[in-house]
Design a protein around this nucleic acid. Structure first.
Length: 981
RNA sequence: GGGCGAUUAGCUCAGUGGGAGAGCACUACAUUGACAUUGUAGGGGUCACUGGUUCAAUCCCAGUAUCGCCCACCA
């Protein structure tokens, strides 16, 4: 022992403040150089695995606050488990994000006046790959700045070779099981992006519109009696069946139907009424003439119309409305498509539309006026035409939900096309059971409602997209053999689903026979038929042009990234993964589908399905500080990178953790980030203080040997804190874990422990000093460790700065709490209480903060006497009292603090205003009286004493006694002061 | 229309069936030996409202109000 046992302040090596800007990149590089995050890094060979797969960000994405939260929480779990000794893999990767990515590159081309069709599919896809190599994945560098400890060497991409192989495998095998099929039905069609989209990609947006009431004339000679009501002014008002007897009837030769989309009337093929509707009973089976078009369409009875709504008669457009499509199927109404794929009106050359129409001038005019025009323009024109024809009954303002494509942003059209579907209902069943039977658990649990409500009403999942960027559907089309040979009028298509072109040809060969020469064409004008002879000699196959929904490949993420369909070592080790951390918005998009696919394809040794993860942690949304969603258009977007620049990654992470409480959205207020940046500075300076006092790091402590009460106390508190933090991370209570860490570091370690050590370091008890130096460093080391998951950069830096270490901090073992309560807490709590009271009285009495004043302890017992002696230095430094003396009674004219059995007196006659001291004590008495009265009332209540648990009653009794004793002492003090005044 | 959540200090939020908490903001004082990105002390809340259960409700239950989100095919 040399210099550091003397009362010298050493020069700290740490700068005064933590410089995040220079330290963070350096630490990041350190981790990188050491491959610190590689799968299993730092773990023993037989360690338990722990795996999280990242929710793959879009390749076009950049880090937003949602990612910052999501990745912070994952990284906390990952670092925590890594330090606990598990074999950890955090699997990173990206999503190819079909539409989003294609749009980005299309926009770039548009700047050069190029359309993707100009350069062709192959060239266009090449351009997207080029773009991806150049600009894609910037988000990963941003995530590294956040400190995300993914195994970056294992980065995957949903379009890369391995994952594409998984997609093929899944598609082909689901097809073979009839869980994937092709079907012609109405889909949600995005007329801007010219592709089908799934139900989930449709957003309902409330829109102000109108409800137009049109008159459809009944066929010649048909009339009916239409009931009406009368209002107070004698005007006719609509009648509904529930109104009872109508006021009267009028004879009508037309039906009134209402619509929000007048343009669809061009495709009307019927009018439906309820079979129970008394108004229209006589009309069922009759016809109306479709205005403007002149088509005769039937009036049908169907359970779909609600007699209480609208007019009770509903126009049917099976090709452009999901309900009408169903009614059409039931009632045998044809579906007439009247839209091009871009939602312009399709009349000229529209075979189905023209069928059965006489080529009258009326129709010719209609075609001339409307064909090729945009749907909304046509809407206005149609209304105008109805008005001119005197068939517009009335117009009402109408608010309704209009479906919009979430990417293209324009209203979608229900559109009749061939698409591929996944039989989601079948796959959903085991996925529902897994959650019901708690093999997979949502945290917080209430998100299971979202999951169930989605899964239990699940519709066939439309997985084909008319895009170029994505996994091309592995289906090849050829002509139906029999149709070919029989020269049938209707040509059916034969589908060959295969993992490769060669396999498809093989299948085709088998189907068409050995004599057929089979080739693949990409010719868009290719025809499926047209052979020359009755022997099939030449067949061209053409691959389906469509690609798969992006979420199809994402659904395979937990096993495809681990190497599936190959049975890799990683797959074996890390599947089932542990927890999925995600926002609630993609529970149906992603979580539900991963459950379906995982359970279908992954089996354990006994062939039992294995869920992709045992826990789904659902976190909140990050909103601005007023609770609004962040969006570019609102201009309230906070860029996490700016926050990292300003406050450091650790501060941002800590904020995310402490605000990421379960089941609640986060309103981000940047002042809080500043607060947690300050927290880092506090810890930094605590270390600096330690350095100045020769504190030693990395030395093990035998707790039984620790002598100083403060040291024993802080070690006990440390144990409590570590246990608390550990338990809370295990329970995904990130806010509680961060809160416990914060309180321990600032409110216990810095505010009291270091303050209480100051007199020790300044004193001349060398043994005490040596012990304090070791203990102080030991606790600091523990702090670095338990804070590391939250603030990895600073703690890693401090870890390195304070001692030569065997391991870097992110591989250091998580502290283990030892329970060891020896009563030190009582003593320190007494001391802390006394000092706090001293400070409070001094402040109230306006005594100069720096001034030392004498203390006389009246009525102290032996324990108190001993404590006064032990902590004299601390009381001097922190309470600014000196010359501590003992007395039987409090001297006159002093301020008095009742603490335990004793009274601490500050003899300040002349220095303080005794009147003020008197009123201070009076206030205290009043407060005690209030408490005593409350407790006496409670304990006097027979029902309380009889019904409350015994320990509660005893507790309250104890409190009452305590208050009463306290009151006696305070009253004595008060009287003494009162006398002196 | 159905479902979920929120309502606690000026602001952002924790929290518990048994004496209301944090951060920021505010007030006063302090400061060249860890830290002004600080310290000490202090002010500030009928825990949205109304009922109910209970010995006891901010907490549990029901209803009301306000706000937010999700789902849904109303012509």
């Amino acid at each position: 022992m040399s210099n550091d046992t003397q009362n010298e302040i050493s020069e700290p090596t740490l700068a005064k403040n933590f410089d995040a800007k220079s330290v963070e990149p350096r630490i990041a590089k350190l981790w990188d150089d050491l491959d610190a995050f590689a799968a299993g890094a730092g773990a023993k060979p037989d360690a338990d695995p722990y795996c999280i797969v990242i929710p793959p960000p879009n390749v076009t994405g950049s880090l937003h606050m949602g990612h910052a939260l999501n990745n912070t929480l994952q990284d906390i779990l990952i670092r925590f488990e890594r330090m606990r000794g598990k074999n950890v893999l955090w699997q990173p990767g990206m999503d190819h994000a079909g539409i989003a990515t294609q749009m980005v590159v299309e926009r770039q081309l548009a700047e050069k006046q190029i359309h993707r069709r100009d350069i062709g599919r192959e060239e266009f896809v090449k351009k997207i790959w080029e773009w991806k190599e150049e600009s894609g994945g910037t988000i990963f560098n941003q995530m590294k700045r956040l400190g995300a400890s993914c195994d970056w060497s294992r980065e995957r991409f949903t379009m890369d070779e391995g994952l594409s192989k998984a997609v093929l495998e899944v598609f082909v095998s689901l097809y073979k099981e009839d869980l994937i099929y092709k079907d012609k039905r109405l889909v949600n069609w995005d007329p801007k992006l010219l592709t089908a989209i799934s139900d989930l990609e449709v957003e309902q947006i409330e829109t102000k519109g109108h409800l137009w009431y049109f008159r459809y004339p009944l066929e010649d000679g048909v009339t009916y009696e239409h009931p009406y009501n009368l209002d107070e002014e004698g005007e006719k008002t609509p009648w509904k069946p529930s109104d009872g007897d109508p006021a009267g009837y009028e004879t009508r030769d037309y039906l009134v139907v209402a619509t929000t989309r007048p343009e669809t009337m061009l495709g009307d093929t019927g009018v439906a009424v309820s079979p129970d509707d008394p108004r229209y009973k006589s009309l069922v089976g009759k016809h109306v003439t479709l205005p403007l078009v002149g088509r005769k369409i039937p009036i049908v009875a169907d359970e779909y119309p609600d007699p209480e709504e609208g007019t009770g008669a509903v126009k049917m457009t099976p090709a452009h409305d999901f309900n009408d499509f169903e009614v059409g199927k039931r009632q045998n109404l044809p579906a007439i498509n009247i839209l091009h794929d871009d939602a312009s009106i399709f009349l000229a050359g529209n075979k189905k539309f023209l069928e059965g129409l006489e080529s009258t001038t009326q129709v010719e005019t209609l075609i001339a006026e409307l064909d090729g025009k945009d749907r909304f323009k046509v809407r206005a024109l149609i209304v105008e035409m109805f008005e001119q024809a005197d068939l517009l009954d009335k117009i009402e303002d109408h608010k309704h939900q209009v479906p919009h494509g979430d990417r293209g942003g324009v209203p979608i059209e229900p559109y009749l096309t061939d698409q591929w579907y996944v039989d989601a209902a079948t796959l959903a069943k085991p996925a529902i059971a897994s959650v019901r039977e708690e093999r997979t658990n949502f945290v917080p649990k209430n998100w299971e409602n979202t999951y169930f409500s989605w899964m239990e009403n699940i519709q066939p999942w439309c997985i084909s997209r008319q895009l170029w960027w994505g996994h091309q559907i592995p289906a090849w089309y050829g002509p139906n053999k029999d149709d070919l040979l029989n020269d049938a009028a209707e040509h059916r298509i034969e589908i060959f689903v295969a993992k490769s072109e060669a396999e498809a040809i093989e299948q085709a060969q088998e189907y068409y026979g050995k004599s057929a020469a089979i080739s693949i064409t990409t010719n868009p004008n290719f025809k499926l038929w047209g052979v020359e002879s009755e022997n099939i000699t030449k067949i061209e196959l053409r691959r389906d042009e469509d690609v798969l929904d992006t979420w199809f490949s994402s659904a395979l993420w937990p096993f495809s990234t681990l190497g599936w369909p190959d049975q890799t070592a990683e797959l074996k080790k890390y599947y089932q993964t542990d927890v999925l951390v995600t926002g609630f918005d993609i529970i149906p998009f992603w979580v539900a589908r991963m459950m379906m696919m995982g359970l279908h394809f992954m089996k354990d040794e006994d062939g039992k399905p294995v869920e992709p993860f045992h826990t789904v942690y659902v976190h909140a949304l990050v909103l601005d500080k007023h609770g609004a969603k962040m969006s570019k258009s609102k201009g309230n977007v906070i860029d996490p990178l700016n926050l990292i620049d300003e406050y450091g990654a650790d501060a941002l992470r800590f904020t995310m953790a402490i605000m990421g409480g379960q089941g609640r959205d986060i309103r981000l207020d940047t002042t809080r980030i500043a607060g947690y940046r300050n927290f880092g500075t506090k810890l930094w300076n605590a270390t600096r203080f330690a350095q100045m006092n020769g504190v030693k790091h990395g030395i093990a402590i035998d707790r039984a040997e620790v002598k100083l009460t403060v040291n024993r106390w802080i070690l006990t508190e440390l144990d409590k804190a570590v246990a608390d933090i550990t338990a809370n991370i295990e329970k995904y209570r990130f806010n509680d874990a961060a809160g416990a860490a914060y309180k321990f570091v600032w409110n216990l370690y810095c505010d009291w422990y270091l303050e209480l050590l100051k007199p020790v370091f300044a004193g001349d008890d060398e043994d005490a000093k040596a012990e304090a130096q070791i203990c102080c460093g030991y606790v600091l080391d523990a702090i670095y460790t338990f804070l590391h998951p939250f603030m990895p950069f600073m703690t890693e830096e401090l870890w390195a700065e304070t001692a030569e270490r065997d391991v870097i901090l992110c591989h250091a073992p998580w502290p283990k709490p030892e329970t060891h309560d020896d009563g030190a807490a009582d003593e320190i709590n007494w001391l802390v209480g006394l000092i706090t009271e001293l400070r409070s009285v001094r402040a109230e009495m306006n005594i100069k903060p720096g001034a030392f004043i004498p203390l006389i302890m009246a009525g102290a017992n032996d324990v108190t006497k001993a404590r006064l002696k032990t902590h004299a230095a601390a009381l001097r430094q922190l309470g600014r009292v000196e010359n501590i003396e003992l007395a039987e009674d409090a001297p006159k004219g002093s301020a008095q603090i009742v603490i335990g059995e004793a009274t601490a007196c500050l003899p300040l006659a002349g220095l303080i205003d005794l009147g003020e001291e008197k009123s201070r004590l009076e206030k205290e008495l009043k407060k005690l009286d209030g408490e005593i009265k409350r407790l006496e009332g409670k304990l006097g209540n027979q029902r309380f004493v009889a019904n409350a648990p015994a320990e509660i009653v005893a507790e309250e009794k104890g409190k009452l006694e305590e208050y009463k004793a306290q009151r006696v002492r305070v009253a004595t003090a008060f009287e003494r002061v009162a006398e002196a005044v």
